[in-house]
């Protein structure tokens, strides 16, 4: 059995973390400038009025935060403005930061793999093209670095070459991949993988599934079946049902999260592709509405570009002006 939680040199850990924040900042503010940068320009005299708030509202909506959540944030700021609490741009920035943190802080709950049970089964779900398989590859790397043993289950038996794609990730990370032929019953594949992982004393089993739209009821039922079947081997499994969401999606991502949650009871969310110019504002809508823990965010192709979600870092990156980079 492998050593659990072998910690890396803390200093090295810290430096890679700093690097990530820097990348997060530079990526979130690439392309069009955002928030503070524009706000400073907007209130040259430093006076905060309704116009500034309206401009801010516009900015929030452009970040896919959604009309509902944006309105709530702006209404809060408006109340403070009415009470004359927003004297200058700094006060506005601080209030905004507070409002965003109020929404995001509660969902900042990193995924911790406990010492038992084994295998710890993580079921990855999401729509087509969200980045499930790539996320599995990166998470596998991460768990290996933490000193855990990992196995992958090729539960996407539908899409052409999905099994092979996962196998490549298995080879890259040198971890076993349990797969059957294309078209096999995904529940059976994952069940077999659970048994194999148990027999081999594997710590973490990452189970891939085929992408599906939340409107395809039959396929949503299939996921529920997979969950049920895994539960036969270990009533607590799957221990984590992780929804993978593409950060460049708009308001439908909220619908997605709601429907996957209703069908399966998701226990964590990972946001991918935050390295475009999209701000992933949908994260705020989802956090605001569903309160499901956000586990990881991904800002790039490299494995170290996927890191545990940290509300303060994310908000800081959002609010950082271009000049700070």
């Amino acid at each position: 059995m492998a050593m659990f939680k072998k910690k890396k040199n803390p200093q090295e850990d810290q430096s890679s973390r700093d690097g990530f924040i820097k990348r997060l900042r530079s990526r979130l503010n690439r392309g069009d400038s955002w928030l503070t940068y524009d706000l400073t320009k907007l209130a040259p005299g430093g006076k905060i009025d309704e116009d500034v708030l309206e401009q801010l509202e516009t900015q929030l909506v452009s970040a896919d935060i959604g009309v509902d959540t944006t309105e709530r944030i702006i209404n809060g700021l408006q109340r403070r403005l009415d009470r004359k609490e927003l004297k200058d741009i700094e006060a506005l920035g601080a209030s905004l930061r507070g409002a965003l943190l109020d929404i995001l802080k509660p969902v900042e709950q990193p995924l911790e793999i406990p010492d038992a049970p084994r295998p710890y089964v993580i079921l990855m779900v999401g729509i087509n093209g969200a980045g499930k398989t790539t996320t599995i590859g990166k998470l596998a790397r991460r768990f290996l670095d933490d000193g855990l043993t990992v196995m992958l289950a090729a539960g996407d038996t539908f899409r052409a070459a999905a099994v092979e794609q996962l196998q490549v990730w298995g080879e890259r990370n040198n971890v076993p991949v349990i797969a059957q032929k294309s078209g096999a019953d995904p529940a059976a594949v994952i069940f077999d993988a659970c048994e194999a992982a148990r027999a081999r004393g594997i710590d973490v089993l990452l189970a891939d599934t085929a992408g599906r739209l939340q409107t395809q009821q039959g396929l949503m039922d299939e996921l529920a079946k997979i969950k049920r079947v895994i539960g036969k081997l270990d009533p607590g499994a799957p221990h984590e049902i992780m929804l993978v969401l593409d950060a460049s999606l708009g308001q439908n991502a909220l619908v997605q999260a709601e429907k996957f949650h209703a069908s399966l009871g998701i226990t964590g969310i990972t946001i991918t592709k935050l390295d475009g110019t999209a701000k992933g504002g949908i994260l705020l809508s989802i956090a605001d509405r569903l309160k499901v823990p956000v586990r990881f965010i991904g800002v790039g192709e490299a494995a170290e570009d996927m890191q545990p979600f940290n509300a303060e870092e994310y908000v800081a990156a959002l609010l950082a002006g271009r000049q700070d980079n």
Partner: peptide, 30 residues
């Protein structure tokens, strides 16, 4: 299902390539 950022992506691709058309995928969702 793409969000607000889609315009930036579309603009950039349109600038880089002589696009002749657009295909919208996953339109069977809600």
């Amino acid at each position: 299902m793409a969000g607000q950022d889609a315009v930036n992506a579309a603009k950039a691709f349109d600038l880089s390539l002589p696009l002749t058309g657009i295909i919208l995928t996953k339109a069977d969702g809600d």
